[in-house]
Design a protein around this nucleic acid. Structure first.
Lengths: 241, 241
DNA sequence: CGAGCCAGTCAACGCGGTGTTGAGTGAAGG
DNA sequence: CCTTCACTCAACACCGCGTTGACTGGCTCG
């Protein structure tokens, strides 16, 4: 009964070490122990962080399903029941990890992409590059999260949120380009934005995991950028014969 | 010890009911009982089929992880140990299901797409439509298989095979179009093929599951076709300002 | 300063799912 | 008839999960 109540973020603890960087992100586990912990007793945060880094390390070698909670606990130097004091489940750990990645990609994107773009080509290209770099840097987490998405509703929701944000921005940018007469109509801007962002997600995933046919790392960004430009600015094709 | 030896396909049984339609597809489970069964004692095949249909039925309501082997066995009117006589694991069942879908999409595609195309636009469009129809018809299996792909190496391999086949065809068709001067260069044909097929996979998945931002069912095929045409035939963009 | 609270910890338990063993049964078939 | 072989299942061993309940040691407040 000493479990922390469903209070997500009580106040700024002394140490600035809080791992879950941004986004509200509800807890994962069914019932009992939601994510956060109340006070800032130092050892506590260290443990939480130890769990996260252990998870990231193990994920580099094996899929989430092959990692037991006991592995995570041992890796962090605690017992299995103690693990549950910090996280409600394995999934919750991965979700916390994913939170950090999402926060980073969003933050980076904001600093670079706020201007609509004097030169559209480089504008779109740099947006793609940011996605690529962040995915690449945290590939283990991203790959594991993609797997989670298939079976875990909370994971799906989280990912859907990210995609919504990005397709929203993309759609707005496309509409702006259309408004100034630079891009043709033909597909609703929102749908086109969904398609292009889906493309990035799937292609980058394939390139970074390397299963199935994939685009080589050295040229993914350029190839994707070319497809984006053609899809956004290209006319509906003469398709001659 | 009466378990069937690792013989995948011994000879054509009397009944033409063999469920695993095409592709060699090694067994899934770690060690003991690989997929097939030897002779054609009728009750045997019926059982195997009963398991498959039960799986497909249950998948319509719940994810694979929520389905226990006992559910499958009971649904087919057998006990749990007996289940293992037919399949090595839950995953093997899904893989068998997926085999059928793959065989169907490949077969359908072959009948429709063999000619290079008098009218490119409709050619590409009908290729996309076939994918869409088949995905749609077996959406539960496809969705479950996509989830499996994240954690199961055999599932990954199977899916990679399909994608290889399709990107190969697409790349060949693109190169043919380039050869006759109808399409420009700019991206290696193979890479473009990978990108476009990845796009289809991800977008159709999103549309059929409905999580995250998605393209409406009524227009997916058209929108995708437009993107394909622009990506294949569009020039590298004037991108003016 | 002593009482009490509270973050933090873990041995031990119960549960549900998995895969295996070993003993059967009944129909073909020599 | 007696063997063989496809097929079946009760019972078992095992593992990972999530929970309980008891314990500890530092902090705070009367």
């Amino acid at each position: 009964m000493s479990r922390p109540a469903p209070t997500p973020a009580p106040g700024p603890g002394p140490a600035a070490r809080t791992p879950t960087a941004a986004t509200p992100t509800a807890a994962t586990g069914r019932a009992p122990s939601p994510r956060g912990r109340r006070t800032a007793r130092p050892s506590g945060d260290e443990r939480e962080l130890a769990i996260l880094t252990t998870a990231e390390r193990l994920l580099a070698e094996q899929p989430l399903t092959a990692i037991s909670i006991d592995d995570l606990a041992r890796g962090a130097g605690i017992s299995r029941p103690t693990f549950y004091f910090y996280f409600a489940s394995k999934d919750a750990v991965l979700l916390a990890l994913l939170d950090r990645v999402i926060a980073q990609v969003n933050a980076t994107a904001r600093t670079v992409l706020d201007d609509v773009g004097s030169d559209p080509a480089t504008h779109w290209r740099s947006a793609i590059r940011i996605f690529y770099e962040t995915f690449r840097e945290h590939r283990t987490v991203v790959v594991a999260a993609a797997a989670l998405r298939g079976s875990h509703s909370e994971g799906r929701r989280l990912w859907a949120g990210v995609m919504n944000l990005w397709t929203g921005r993309t759609a707005a940018a496309i509409e702006a380009e259309r408004a100034r007469g630079a891009a043709p109509d033909g597909i609703p801007a929102h749908d086109l934005a969904v398609i292009l962002n889906s493309t990035n997600e799937r292609v980058l995933y394939g390139t970074l995991t390397g299963d199935g046919p994939a685009v080589p790392e050295s040229t993914v960004v350029d190839s994707l950028a070319t497809v984006w430009l053609r899809a956004i600015y290209g006319t509906t094709t003469p398709a001659g014969r």
